[in-house]
Write a protein that binds this DNA or RNA. Structure first.
Lengths: 187, 187
DNA sequence: GGACTCATGTAAGCTGTTACATGATTTC
DNA sequence: GAAATCATGTAACAGCTTACATGAGTCC
């Protein structure tokens, strides 16, 4: 789902500025999507041209002027239709898995470092999702995504803890630890 | 990690054609990355221009002519360096989570359908990874990625099974089931 | 005869990121 | 006084996908 559609969706939850939407991406959407200013502001512009949103300017005394966007009836209907059409799917992009896939080409210390890095990442994300659980005002759907995210992260951390040592042990004993270059001459 | 680097990595596992590499993306890399012909062939071309790979043509009798690529010493070194530099990270892009996040805007039947769709997806992917577990010739790193993938998918399926009914129940009783348009007049 | 697999490649276009440009206010 | 937060936007570019173009062999 493109950023434009997601911006429209964000505005279906309440009026907001481009800046507010960026924060939504950084917080609520963070564990399943991302977007930068460079895609959010042009998206809002296009949405307005298409009549899906409108805006009014709030003059600021204690903050800069802000453009507060609001979804139109037409925009809401469009989002609903797009949502219903979207097939349920998921795509992981994991540099960590790439690293593991080619782990036999890396020195053990580096592998160890990557594992530690990933564990820290997972822990941090889990902490964040746990902090969200305490908050109120979530729909049942949002609770579901948070709950699922937490379960998955716990599984990943468990998996790391239980298989880390085995992996590192067999990594050190792997064939051609240092003689990759020699193998090549056999052609 | 860009497709070009991944192609170089693929060739570090053995000589291959562009077509072979596409299959690798569809199979082995499938659960953490993807790429199409339109990015693979140009990548191989660039890699050759840069001296990271070379190729020889295998004339086919029972199959079309194929360009068999091989990594050079320089290419191998470059890949190793790039691999060691790559930070361990992960990014999920989930339309399913988006759907759940906005679930309160969808009719219950549609939500139900999306949940079923996702369950089918997860089951299919789990079956595939389970079929891989039986195969031999995996490095410990690859086994790790497969094992982790399986654990995660089982967790997701479990979560779906345990929370599906609760979600659907509270979805049907949600406020403003059908009166989204009325709410709007209060501005 | 039709569908699928094997095999290579290009061109147009979409989507999004990074970096730049600007500037006020608030917090430490 | 420095750094962070609030706030908006553009331009250049990267990277990838989709669709097209082509064609032989194999399996049902």
């Amino acid at each position: 789902m493109r950023v434009k559609t997601l911006c429209l969706g964000a505005l279906c939850l309440g009026d907001a500025t481009g800046y507010d939407i960026k924060k939504l991406f950084e917080n609520a959407f963070n564990h399943f999507h991302s977007a930068s200013f460079g895609s959010i502001y042009p998206s809002l512009k296009k949405l307005e041209e298409e009549g899906h949103v409108s805006h009014r300017v709030e003059a600021g005394e204690k903050h800069p002027d802000r453009k507060l966007f609001r979804v139109t009836d037409e925009g809401r209907a469009t989002f609903l239709a797009q949502l219903a059409q979207t097939p349920a799917s998921e795509q992981l992009r994991s540099e960590f898995m790439v690293l593991l896939f080619f782990a036999h080409l890396l020195p053990t210390e580096i592998l160890q470092q990557k594992l530690a890095e990933m564990e820290a990442h997972y822990s941090q994300e889990l902490n964040y999702l746990e902090s969200l659980s305490g908050c109120e005002g979530h729909t049942s759907g949002i609770d579901f995504t948070i709950g699922m995210g937490k379960s998955v992260l716990r599984t990943k951390l468990d998996y790391l803890h239980h298989h880390r040592e085995t992996l590192l042990a067999s990594h050190q004993n792997r064939p051609d630890s240092q003689n990759i270059r020699q193998t090549e001459s056999s052609s």
